[in-house]
Design a protein around this nucleic acid. Sequence first.
DNA 1: CAGTGTATCGTACAGTGTACGAAAATGGGA
DNA 2: TCCCATTTTCGTACACTGTACGATACACTG
Lengths: 232, 232
Amino acid sequence: MKAAEITEGTQERTPLSRERVLRCAVEIADVEGIGALTMRSLALALGVKPMSLYYYVANKGVILDAIVDMVFSEIELPSIDGHWQAEMRARGIAMRQALRRHPWAIGLLESRTSPGTATLRHHDATLGVLRQAGFSVALTAHAYALLDSYIYGFALQEAALPFNGPDTASEITAPIVELFSSGEYPHLVEIATEHVLKPGYDFGDEFEIGLNVILTALAQWLPRAENHGPQH
Amino acid sequence: MKAAEITEGTQERTPLSRERVLRCAVEIADVEGIGALTMRSLALALGVKPMSLYYYVANKGVILDAIVDMVFSEIELPSIDGHWQAEMRARGIAMRQALRRHPWAIGLLESRTSPGTATLRHHDATLGVLRQAGFSVALTAHAYALLDSYIYGFALQEAALPFNGPDTASEITAPIVELFSSGEYPHLVEIATEHVLKPGYDFGDEFEIGLNVILTALAQWLPRAENHGPQH
DNA sequence: CAGTGTATCGTACAGTGTACGAAAATGGGA
DNA sequence: TCCCATTTTCGTACACTGTACGATACACTG
């Protein structure tokens, strides 16, 4: 046994790679938040010294760009062969789930403006489905802006909420209720007490409701033959 | 003339205040980006030393919370007396404009989760208009989630775009076109060349299109008497 | 063995938020 | 006027950030 093997100890040293660096970066951001993702914490998690990372990555910025692109790569591409409404619904749901798994990606979208290949592929496939469905170029642009705005915005709201998933711990609701007891904000109180704070409520359920509204409205833009909505 | 006045020099020393600190913080974020907003840069802009800020502000986090709330305070509250569609349209437009003036606020929405009073007032007024229009509590929640998701998401996309406003400098479009010339992304190329890069195109124009689609769709949720949309 | 790329790291520097306590300015009785 | 208590400002220091620059170790060839 050589000395090198001893100093390395029990920890088998996987040889590090750009892949491994980026994967680990996503994991840290998921578990401890994007704020905890530093070059030093990343290196530590990889069992390596900080400066070693710069062999695989020019700077932290490209890590951020790359992990945003990895989020997009988790979203299954819509198929140009399926029905556009079904494909767009599935895409929306998958996209929201991905952004829920990686909420930090939403904030990065605003600051990092150089999309990666997975992002471009995703956009291209989505546009293709809309064009194939019969939307004109202009209507495709309108529809896409509408759909993506909704999806991003919903994910953003979801990320900003203090509660997640069905039911809510009372240690969360109590201070909210107390804050509202001032008498201002009567409508917020109404919505909260009669809807949001009711047992079983899950804000996430609102997503498909709004998505269906949009998809139904978009169907009205199509020529009658392809339009499945209830229209004149 | 006293010595104090001499040492202070030409620069009249407005006596610093929480107001002034926060206003200056917004201005720095607007002009140089949220990344340039540091306690040191803020102090320098105010003609003061960094630690002086902490007399008015507990930490940087409350500055971030407060400037997000200031953005909401710029949005005129919808009136409960107007027609709900007109009020919601005006609110959406005002909100998008505010987020366009202060793009950094979008990213902060994701990370800072304790809303200020202006934010709460805004939400309350909006919910009030929808309730007054005849939407049930549940439908109000659905409508609100849908509208706000769209508005936030649109602002997010707008902030992420490399170009802003009508027309686009060719030094921006050129690398994009080149990137697409690989032959992948055919639909992106189509949308870009036949729509987005056409002279006079402004992505911001997409906003009211989508907003109208949503408002029209929401009208279908109302009882017939109050429903102004084309419905069975 | 020497030599050549590949991969890892030590050290150092400017910049960040802010804890802690000292200093200055201010204002009001005596 | 002096004194003192409050209010307001600041100096210094510390832990932490990204990363520039150059040295080192490693795995191969020849």
